[in-house]
Amino acid sequence: MTASLETDRNLLSRSSLSEAALFLLLGTALVAALLLGTVVGPYAIAPSEVLRLVGARLTGTAEPSTAATVLFNIRLPRVLAAALVGAALAGAGAAYQTIFRNPLVSPDILGVSAGAGFGAVLGILLSMPVIVIQLMGFAGGLATVAMVIGVAALLRGQAEVLVMVLTGIALGALASAGISVVKILADPDQQLPAITFWLLGSLAGVKPGDLTLAVLPVVAGLVPLIALAWRIGVMAMGEDEARALGVETGRLRLLVILCATLVTATAVAISGIIGWIGLMVPHMARFLVGARFDRLLPASLILGATFLVLVDTTARSVATMEVPLGVLTALIGAPVFVWLLARGRREWA
């Protein structure tokens, strides 16, 4: 019964760490990152002060102060938005990778981000309220993923991984062209700067209200994914095998795509296009907990949140001007992508 696990790659079964202990560690790291994110900034607030203010707010004994204003109106919304967006993109990436049996797909590579971006930018051009921008982003993302799957189905029998990635890139380019058209049409003083900065990914403009609007669709998208995690994981075995094992793959795939796209589009609507997280974080999570989706999804959510909070904190503190988030994630993501290509080339056709 005591199996030798010496060559096992993932940390969970290689170390004596239990699943609960590992998730406790990940959770602690997230809390630490959140705390760091609220502390760092031009107006210094001590960690103990953050905890005291949050405690006072929760018990309803808060007194107005500059620190409280900075914390609750500016910094906390931004840090929480980073956590929400990071979790959303990483969770969606883990889901897409699992159901498409493809370690190289992610919301941005499948063109979902660009599609959602096009929808949202169109919303900005038409001066729509935030909720309509989110809906248009969702529609754009869903349309893109539907077309990617459609093309892959049409070209059935050919290297499916390749077809899907290339179709995603093509449609992503098309959506980017659409975005360029919107930029030409946009008002150069008001809309264009907002669109440009937003396209590179930024949480600078996040207000407490945006966060409230975004939490609901992200949670609504993630709950079914978490609840059905075991069955979703079985889909990694492929269509025939998953069905032979008792999974109604058609229905489940549709549900997963809708949920993951809703989550991605919501993230894009509040933060713009932040690439790489959906691709990279699930791989980091797999390294820790293995391929099982019922572990991979929660690990990706926590890691994604931690990662983006740290990246965003870096983005607003390394230089006097803010570095766009997409620039930082690309800086980390591109080398990781190349490493994945080098490591995994045997496993995909």
């Binding site: 079964s13 699992t98 990694a236 075995m237 094992l245 008792g246 999974v247 293995g290 391929a291």
Partner: peptide, 16 residues
């Protein structure tokens, strides 16, 4: 399978 499921994970899928 494109991911590093363990042998135990794969067998467990039979319980689905």
């Amino acid at each position: 399978v494109p991911f590093a499921f363990t042998a135990l994970d794969v067998v467990l899928m039979a319980r689905t």
